[in-house]
Design a binder for these strands. Structure first.
Lengths: 202, 202
DNA sequence: TAGATTGTTAATCGATTAACAATC
DNA sequence: TAGATTGTTAATCGATTAACAATC
């Protein structure tokens, strides 16, 4: 499977999850297209790579399609992730239902500020960053989320990599140097905004 | 210009901005590639569409390339945006330097909670959501950022659209229905995480 | 000069789309 | 049956990559 297909399947998953919440029980490729801006033919083609999940003239059953896509993406189980940074952004991430909804469990929160260590975020205690390696090993964590200011981000990235984390979500604007077997996703709303503006102005 | 090219140019801009901060004054396509995971040939090809900005054997001058890309994306000036939601996420967004660095100015913050209206975020006063249409008109705002819980997001989207906003950044997991001339970018870290995990597990 | 890196060509591959028969 | 929507084909387009001459 290519990167593109997996990324799109994840987005279908979100639309299905939300549509289910809104009480719908079936959906057409055209409806998914309206929400994702992905062409309806592309959606049907992506799904038909893996089986015949729809009913002609009717659409897709939301529950059964959710199950099929989860099976394809192997996101049935729980995944533990570590959050580094107990500031405003860290709090916002920890309190968001977005992760839990997709079986992603924030298993540990860390900070290097002694003022914050020992405090709590949601129901979790903020741990000292020096206990990161132990937590990563014990809780089988492969994903780390960086929610610290840009100037501390490179050091946090080193610590995550040193602890054995293989996927890093970087919410700072810093550039991170990591080994080739580690994946970095940098999330920068300003960058997205720039190209959205470009097309608006054109 | 296609969507892809504009999106990539925006990412080059981020790498250049950060590299400049780190004191570098030139950069090669290979270095940009290391940070973005975009193929170096692709980067050179994207840039050479618009001119010959590099020096063979040397690379690109960071200052001059920054200027060229800003010219191409027309992001020279200031853009005013409206932020709706003065909770933890709203505060995190308002206090982040990411937007200011790219000439994006958070011109107004709104909330519907009377407890929060009149309070301040950074140096800005939180306005009543009912004053949104006036602010959008007076400050020439075309971008709205939604940082409220999913259940209020659809209503906020309606109010933004009604006020004349044309680009919405949605940080809730809600699905938004908007007219065709309005662009919605939904930012969902959990969705990104799912497909990152897929490739790790494979 | 020798080494490095751009700019560009040519070839390949995946994404996108329109169209429509199949069928619920 | 009539209407709707899937699954699939065929054609097109843009992205990606390797390779390398040009040139700093």
């Amino acid at each position: 499977m290519t990167v593109g297909v997996a990324a799109r399947l994840s987005r279908y998953l979100q639309v299905l999850t939300q549509s289910k919440k809104m009480g719908k029980d079936r959906i057409s490729s055209q409806e998914i297209s309206d929400y994702t801006n992905i062409n309806a033919t592309q959606i049907r083609r992506d799904l038909s790579n893996f089986g015949r999940f729809g009913k002609r003239g009717v659409g897709y059953n939301i529950d059964s399609l959710l199950g099929e896509i989860r099976k394809i993406l192997r996101t049935q189980g729980q995944h533990n992730i570590a959050l580094v940074g107990a500031g405003r952004l860290g709090e916002a991430i920890a309190s968001s239902p977005i992760f839990a909804e997709h079986g992603i469990n924030i298993a540990a929160v860390f900070d290097n500020d002694p003022e914050k260590v020992g405090g709590s975020i949601g129901s979790m205690e903020v741990g000292d960053i020096r206990t990161l390696p132990t937590a990563v090993r014990e809780k089988n964590i492969i994903v780390g989320v960086i929610a610290v200011p840009a100037d501390s981000a490179p050091q946090v990235a080193d610590e995550l990599v040193g602890s054995g984390v293989k996927i890093i979500f970087n919410y700072s604007e810093a550039l991170l140097d990591v080994p080739h077997d580690v994946t970095v996703h940098t999330s920068n709303p300003a960058v997205d905004l720039l190209h959205a503006l470009y097309f608006h102005l054109t």
